[in-house]
Nucleic acid binder design. Structure first.
Lengths: 203, 203, 203, 203
DNA sequence: CATGAATGAGATTTCATTCAT
DNA sequence: AATGAATGAAATCTCATTCAT
């Protein structure tokens, strides 16, 4: 069965859009389990029954939003990194794009985090989709000698961990927009690691 | 007011322990919202009403476990890092301890992740408690020139991000025990960053 | 906030009416605490959940009925007493109307009595609403020399006491309809007091 | 079965007393259905189980207190009225005693009111016990020409209505002690009725 | 006598989903 | 396409009562 029924009329398309916007906001703000269909309906300005014209059930709406998030984010990163040469530049641009996307779509960002308790398969799939693309790129870069030698899978999870926790701190906890300085700072860690050259050199 | 009612008899203490064990396992396995009091009661071998002798409601049990997790994990890390000299050693030992703790207490580890949708305050508090301790240590180490200069708060969130996503990949997704080799690999990243010396040397 | 949600369709209006009728009867017959939502639903011929479309909780339904009782009773008494000249006539007609109302709506009458243990504020408010209207009329009549001089507030509570206990004896305990003779008898007391003229003349 | 198990030791007697005091207060303050055995136990400073040493169940404690109330009140009124000659004096003293008793034992007074929804038989029995004694005295007084001729049963309910509602207003609603002036005022009504002599004489 | 932990039936309330209009 | 009333299974939580200690 399909996650969503594509509307045939313009009126229907607008209704679906309103449902998605409302659902995105509410899932992010209150969480999947604390969001009722009636809440979504009220926020979207429709009757509860109308929700079921477009989605077969609640979880389908969630999965649909989750899919959309991944797709859009990957598209943006791909677009942003299209012109770069080195892996360093790609990483820098990726970080920047991720943070700005998470800031604009804080809803979708928070939806991913809870997915593991709503739909573990969808959650795992989300991260693995990201990792998969990473792994190829990382492998290539390692062959070119650009990147530290290590398991490409863990490599990508480390980078995702950094990205996600920086976003958590900056956007969710502190409610700030990520600045260019922040991106620079974080990227410094990614480039050099945690330890100061001197300390490391002494070893 | 109180998250938990301390039992007055040995029998009561045992019952409470059984409730905690059952709740920890179920919250982790199925998530907070998919875990019913009746499930906990059945797993603990008690009547449903007995749960409410010790906890005023479901969410209090969750918060109690969350608190306990943080406390135990911090205690173990502190104990493990008590004899070390440098920040590098401390970090290495901390990572190792975290992964082995998460592997033993996968329940508690997964409880933290969902906390933001059960009780955002408790969730934030959890990470901030960790960050707070980190920040001091990091500041000191930076003064000694051991660590890269950067905002200590983001520094700690970066490290927590790495730890958590490595645990996610290894323990949750792959269902493996973290090995010493993994710890070494991840630590390599923390020490040198993402980029190979040669590539970096160009800078 | 609101005690009741006003239905938007005719079907809804009928359902609400059926719920009110059922609740009125059951609250009166078995008391608030011995009446279950499922009893009301069964008697109204609806599913339990439907109750909650119209009332946010059990106590709101009770308060709503209590309000309605007061309003309807006051309206009837006002209507009945609209054409009278003297306070004596007004009082006579008021007593008569009260007893016949209580007899028709024994449910609502009994609901008031228990209100003090369900919702003390609503209970107090009920009697004070009655007393308030009384007090004005009594004050006026006293100025015209029609009524014994005494505190108008206690005056009204005395009259309410007489009305309520006569109704208790006749309707609740003996299960009878109040007759015109009863009204006459009781009114004799109100007119002359307890003591026979001769005995009183001795004073 | 007995309502209460009489204690054999002095320690037991004190415990029973503490239970009764606590129950009286709580039943009055919060109502029968909102009072938990555990509340009574806590207030009495005992364990919940101890309650069941003295009372077979919750309702027995209630009935016991209700019985006690009637007995004590009747005893006090009898004692106070023992020396009087006329029905007028008896009535005056009765009113005074009732109000002062209700003021001291507001708990017991409020317990009676809710009895109809806890135990209708006990409630009816309570008022009928009072009415029964009244009826005899009233009949005699009527034969002596002291009292207005009317059905003695309704006569007694009218008087109880006056007493109870004056107590309700003064003690429960206004939280005041009944004064001698109040007793005088109310008694004026009982003696002369509601209407001023002139107004009545004109008729 | 006293304790307080344990019970478990039962109450209120929620909410995803259906369906007649 | 949209409405909103209705459903009813299921969840959380309560509390009188029992009983081993």
């Amino acid at each position: 069965m399909n996650l969503v029924k594509k509307p045939k009329t313009a009126r229907g398309a607008e209704t679906l859009q309103r449902i998605c916007d409302a659902a995105e906001e509410l899932f992010a703000e209150s969480g999947y389990y604390n969001t009722q269909i009636s809440d979504i309906a009220k926020k979207a300005g429709i009757a509860s029954g109308t929700f079921y014209i477009y989605f077969p059930d609640k979880i389908s709406a969630f999965r649909y939003l989750l899919d959309e998030l991944g797709r859009r984010l990957r598209r943006e990163i791909r677009a942003a990194a299209s012109g770069v040469r080195t892996q360093q530049e790609a990483e820098f641009v990726g970080l920047k794009t991720f943070l700005s996307f998470a800031s604009k779509h804080i809803g979708l960002f928070k939806i991913v985090w809870q997915a593991q308790f709503v739909d573990m398969d969808a959650f795992k799939n989300y991260y693995e989709s990201f990792a998969a693309r990473y792994v190829t790129r990382i492998g290539d870069a390692q062959k070119r000698g650009e990147l530290t030698e290590m398991d490409p899978e863990y490599f990508s999870y480390i980078l995702m961990g950094i990205y996600n926790f920086v976003a958590l701190k900056c956007i969710v906890f502190d409610g700030k927009e990520p600045t260019d300085e922040l991106v620079e700072e974080v990227f410094k860690f990614i480039r050099h690691g945690a330890f100061a050259p001197s300390a490391d050199g002494a070893k």
